[in-house]
Structure formats: structure tokens, C-alpha cells
Computed example of a mutant assay.
Amino acid sequence: MKVDLDKFLAPYRIEDGKGFTLKDHDPRDTHELGIEKADAKELLRTGIERLTELQEMLYAQNRWSVLLIFQAMDAAGKDSAIKHVMSGVNPQGVQVYAFKRPSAEELDHDFLWRCARNLPERGRIGVFNRSYYEEVLVVRVHQEILESQHLPPELVGKSIFDERLEDIANFERYLAHQGTLILKFFLNVSKAEQKKRFLKRLDDPEKHWKFEAGDLAERGHWDAYMDAYQKAIQATAAPHAPWYVVPADNKWFTRLVVAGAIVDSMRRLDLHFPKVSEAERAKFAEYRRALEAE
């Protein structure tokens, strides 16, 4: 089964946040593909194979870097999406960072610092499981967190989150100018589906470790989080740093969209293996004779 990536990804790719609203995006959407799970697995396998090829050229060419940012509510499937989509990529060329609650050291720096110091090198793919966007999501919902960030009081005003969003947009523009391909994924899970997944974690002893009481507390702020995500996407979606609002109620479809978005964007970078000069190639026969003479 072949898929036209441009048409397939268009409903989920946001390059201009003006007029964007989350209510226009259905978490249950599957693009009316009408395919079985076996077909979805085959499509994903094909996408992973292509991603592996592109990653090898990215690494060898050593010109571009790729930053993949994943944001979502709890149980939306960030971990599994990263695991499945990146399963065939050479670990040597991938760096994955899961950002938890900031440490004391991190709180003594600006809010971008801990992510900036873990940006991918040229030739590598960096995956951020949560990111600096937490500063305009969790912190916006729980503004008491600002008190622990040691900011001068006069800088903590009503516009602080608008200022942070502006800083993020400028930061991503800077990264793009330095050769970083930025793709941001909001895994859009419904409140009803999150409930099902939480209950499944409670029912399965092997998944008990995934459940925390705090997850239920955060669920109580659902509307505030949706508003925060909407504001973040509206303020930071750009052609050089697009958001993908990925339907997340069906994990197989989530993985297809994520894999397709990465492949589609990387294939536009004109990646190729470095070419050997004619002078160097002329020496190959000499190198061969030396090896065969050993």
C-alpha cells in the first residue's frame, strides 16, 4: 500500500498558528485509511526502513542535525511512539532525552538551558521527550512553580508566558538558521482514551509502575492544559519549526504519522553520502593491492 505523504500529513502539519484551535483536530482520526493492523505494521516497517537510510546519510554527511520534540498529556503514547519509530535507527546517531522535573542546578539557569545543552550534534537525531515547552504548559497551569525558579519579582508579570513563547519561537528560528531540522509532535489523546489507558495500567501488574497518583491530579486540569497547548502551538508553529497535531487514540496511527513526518522532512534535506574525489578514488587500486599483499 502506497501513501502520498504530502496529502497524508497535510491535516496534521501546522506551519502557521494563526486561527489554530484544538477542537478542529479529532484524537480518534485515522485519515479514513481503512486498513488492518497488519497493513499498518507493514507501512510502519517501510517507513522505518526509509528513515534508517536517511539517518545513515545524515550521519555520514555531517551537515544537518534533526530535533524531534514530543509533547503530550500522560498516557498519550510518547514513549511507545519514540520506541517504535526509532527502532531501526543506528543508536550511534540518535540521542534521546526525557526531561523530568528540573534539578536545583537547572533551576539556577534560564529555562532554555537544560535543553540547549542537550541539542543534537550535526549528523545526529535528537529526541526530546518533553522539552522547554513544559515552561509554557505545566508552569502555565501551575504558576506557583515560578516561585522556585528564582526569577527577579519584577520579571514575573502577566505577560511572562507570552514572553517565553516569543523566546522559544526566536530560539527555534536561530536553530533552523544553524542547520537544525525541527519537528514538534503534540500527541493529541482524548480524555476518554486517557481514562481507558489509566485503568489498563491499574489492571495490569506489569504496568503498575507507570501509574502515579499525580496523573489523576493533572487530569483534573485537562481544560487548562488544552488551552496551554493551543496557545503554544498558535505562538510557535512556523514553516521551519512545524507542529504536528497527531491523533493519538489509536497508537498504530500515531506511529504512522510520526514516522511519515520525519521521513517526509528528512528527504527534503538533499542528504547523500559524501563523494570521494577523483584523486582519492585513483588510489583505491593501490590500497587494494596493499591489502591483498598482506
Rank of each mutant, 00 (worst) to 15 (best):
L67Q: 09
L67E: 08
L68K: 00
L68I: 00
F70P: 01
M73Q: 04
M73P: 03
A75G: 03
A75S: 08
G77R: 08
K78M: 12
K78P: 10
D79A: 04
A81H: 07
A81C: 13
I82V: 09
K83I: 10
H84V: 09
H84C: 06
V85S: 05
M86S: 01
V89M: 08
P91L: 06
G93Q: 05
V94I: 09
V94M: 11
V96A: 05
V96P: 03
A98M: 13
A98V: 13
A98N: 14
F99H: 09
K100W: 01
K100L: 11
K100T: 10
A104S: 15
A104Q: 15
L107S: 04
L107C: 06
D108H: 14
D108G: 15
H109I: 06
H109G: 07
F111C: 01
F111L: 03
F111Q: 00
L112G: 04
L112Y: 02
W113D: 02
W113K: 11
A116T: 14
A116E: 09
A116W: 11
R117T: 08
L119A: 03
P120D: 04
E121V: 10
E121W: 07
R122T: 05
R122V: 01
R124C: 13
I125V: 14
I125P: 00
G126P: 02
V127W: 02
N129W: 06
N129D: 13
R130T: 08
R130V: 06
R130L: 04
R130K: 08
S131H: 08
Y132M: 08
Y133L: 04
Y133A: 02
E135N: 12
E135A: 08
E135F: 04
V136Q: 01
L137V: 10
L137F: 07
V138Y: 02
V139N: 06
V139A: 09
R140L: 14
V141E: 13
V141H: 11
V141L: 10
H142Y: 03
Q143C: 07
E144L: 06
E144Q: 12
I145S: 06
I145A: 10
L146V: 03
L146Y: 00
L146M: 07
S148V: 08
Q149H: 15
H150C: 08
L151T: 08
P152T: 07
V156A: 04
V156Q: 04
G157W: 02
I160G: 00
I160F: 00
D162M: 06
D162S: 09
E163P: 03
E163N: 14
R164W: 05
R164T: 12
L165E: 09
E166P: 01
E166V: 02
D167G: 14
A169W: 15
E172S: 05
R173M: 12
R173C: 11
